[in-house]
């Protein structure tokens, strides 16, 4: 953080040479992303946390309620193959901007990609211990509460068991009954805190998404993904926040289930979000620039002019290697 404060903001474009972005280019790329994929929006965040090198209304990018139907474990074996498939599929279409097939023999891309990734892995394990520290801004905020908060008795979790009351009963034929049956031997929750009992229910809280009996509604995890501009690394930084099938926030260890095994606990750590001040999991950006540089070089080798405003599309494609089951939108649907 201190380093970030004294690092001058990048002012000249080094996009082609180093795969990094200036704040202006980040805004440009974000504008195109939000324009092409309306599920992404610019957010202003907490005004007191605004950074002055980005416009007030364009502090970070956010996409909400992105479904995540399965855990990485279930497709870990396929994940690499499918990623290279994506890249190769793109290559078959001449209009596309990643065209690995035309210039390279099959497989090279995959190898390259793996090399990139393994590079990520190794250097990451060296780096994380020194570069990432959880800086819980929220501590400062919550500390004074203990003094203020006088109505509370020694850490007892307040109990709602005695809540049930005849005052609030609804028997309405026009309300669609949720036909979910209770599943009392709820295996997922036995390690969580006692609150769960208050919440009764939690019908299908298994880690797999499942379909309710009659209503055909799929219960699945969802993620909010945000992208901030990292002034030190001069790249975007990706933050993840997950919710379980019952809209309860996922614990960090549960979030790790949705991160490919190569990256969980190595590339992904927890820190306080710069614009919200809440702890989120994020993908460490220390290798972003060099991977982006490789992808950009590949693009120009294939005779495509790399465009800085398309940076985030390329970037999100690469991020999908890390979070393969989170189905966010990064399709580029226009002619280049």
């Amino acid at each position: 953080k201190t380093v970030e404060k004294v690092t001058p903001t990048l002012s000249t474009s080094k996009f082609l040479d180093e795969g990094v972005l200036t704040p202006e280019e980040f805004v440009q790329a974000g504008d195109l992303l939000t324009h092409m994929c309306p599920t992404w929006t610019w957010e202003s965040g907490d005004p007191s946390r605004n950074v002055n090198f980005l416009p007030k209304e364009k502090q970070f990018l956010l996409t909400r309620n992105v479904p995540c139907y399965s855990r990485v474990k279930s497709l870990e074996n396929e994940s690499r193959a499918s990623i290279s498939d994506i890249l190769q599929l793109e290559g078959e279409d001449d209009e596309e901007w990643v065209a690995p097939k035309s210039g390279n023999p099959d497989g090279v891309i995959e190898q390259d990609l793996q090399k990139d990734m393994s590079g990520l892995k190794v250097s990451q394990s060296n780096n994380t211990t020194t570069t990432t520290t959880t800086k819980p801004t929220t501590i400062d905020n919550t500390k004074p509460t203990s003094d203020d908060d006088d109505e509370d008795e020694d850490g007892d979790i307040p109990d709602m068991e005695d809540f049930q009351d005849d005052n609030l009963v609804e028997d309405d034929p026009s309300t669609l009954k949720s036909n979910q049956q209770t599943n009392n031997n709820n295996n997922n929750n036995n390690n969580s805190n006692n609150n769960v009992s208050l919440e009764s229910s939690t019908g299908n809280a298994n880690s797999n998404s499942s379909v309710g009996d009659d209503d055909n509604i799929l219960r699945t995890r969802t993620y909010d993904i945000s992208i901030t501009y990292d002034k030190y690394y001069q790249t975007p930084r990706v933050w993840l926040f997950g919710y379980d099938e019952n809209r309860k926030p996922l614990k960090p260890e549960e979030i790790f289930e949705d991160i490919s095994e190569d990256h969980a606990h190595k590339t992904v750590t927890i820190d306080s979000h710069p614009h919200l001040g809440i702890s989120f999991a994020y993908i460490h950006p220390c290798r972003h620039a060099s991977v982006m540089k490789k992808l950009i070089t590949k693009q120009s080798e294939n005779g495509k002019e790399p465009r800085v405003d398309q940076y985030l599309f390329l970037f999100l494609k690469f991020i999908s290697v890390v979070i393969p089951t989170i189905e966010y939108d990064f399709t580029l649907e226009f002619d280049t």
Binding site: I139, L168, L198, P249, I270, I278
Partner: peptide, 22 residues
Amino acid sequence: ILPKSVSLASTMDPLKLAEQSV
């Protein structure tokens, strides 16, 4: 009709935050 509850200790509690930091 019952109240819901959510525990944010994992993102608010300083001790838990310290544990999670790698």
